[in-house]
Simulated assay, not measured.
Amino acid sequence: MALRIKSHWWNDEQQRSLSEIGGALAFIGWRIAVDKAISLHCERFVYRDDAQRLEVIQEYLVFLIQIADRLSHDLVDDAQRRDLITAFAKKLVEHIQDNSQDLLGPGDYGSPFLSRLNQRSEEYAEFQLDDEGPTYPFLRHLGFEIQQLMGREEENRWIIDQIMDKDGWDAYKRFAKAFRDLFE
């Protein structure tokens, strides 16, 4: 089933705050990340449990935050970009907390995500987004991190290839289009 993403505002005439755009990006990013986690399962990669699936979703979300940061670079000044990415990340923390609590029970799920985001942001700082999209090392890093989460058992051995060649690229394209639509 195809993922349908609504990325146009209901009232085009109304100005949107960066906080509102960040919230919309979080909703769209969450849907894309969940879709990619499901896609891996459909490709016969095996999750150990729901906690592992949520970890994979979080890796996709970190990747999408990096994409948003780079896409916003030419659209807004540095202070606005920081506000946008902060609003995006804060809303994602809410999604992660709510969904993780529903699946795994009470606990603090937002703080570990923020720690992951901070660590990965340093790592992703080395990688580029050019006119065609994320570079090979950018996608490879996403694939590597997900492979580390999924393990190298026989059924998950080639997950890095799936992410680099198909799923990571598709997540980028969907998210970049939605990002641009929200700023129109």
Rank of each mutant, 00 (worst) to 15 (best):
G151C: 10
I65H: 04
H141T: 01
F63G: 04
D50G: 09
A24Q: 14
L61P: 12
R174V: 00
F45T: 10
Q147T: 05
L149Q: 08
R4V: 14
V34H: 03
W169V: 01
D12S: 12
A79P: 05
H95R: 13
I96L: 09
L92K: 02
T135V: 03
I159D: 01
A125R: 14
S115R: 11
F27A: 13
I160C: 12
I163S: 02
D102W: 00
D74E: 09
F63E: 02
Q148M: 10
F175S: 02
H141S: 09
Q119N: 10
H141K: 11
D74L: 10
G29S: 08
E155F: 03
T86H: 11
R157Q: 09
Q147L: 13
D98N: 14
R81D: 10
Q66I: 00
S111V: 11
C42I: 06
N11Q: 07
R180S: 11
Y136D: 11
D83M: 07
V46Q: 09
D161A: 07
D50I: 03
R152I: 00
R152A: 01
H8C: 08
V76N: 15
L182A: 01
K173P: 00
A89L: 08
Q162A: 13
G105D: 02
R116I: 02
I5A: 09
S72T: 05
G23Y: 15
G143R: 13
F63H: 06
Y60I: 01
D102L: 04
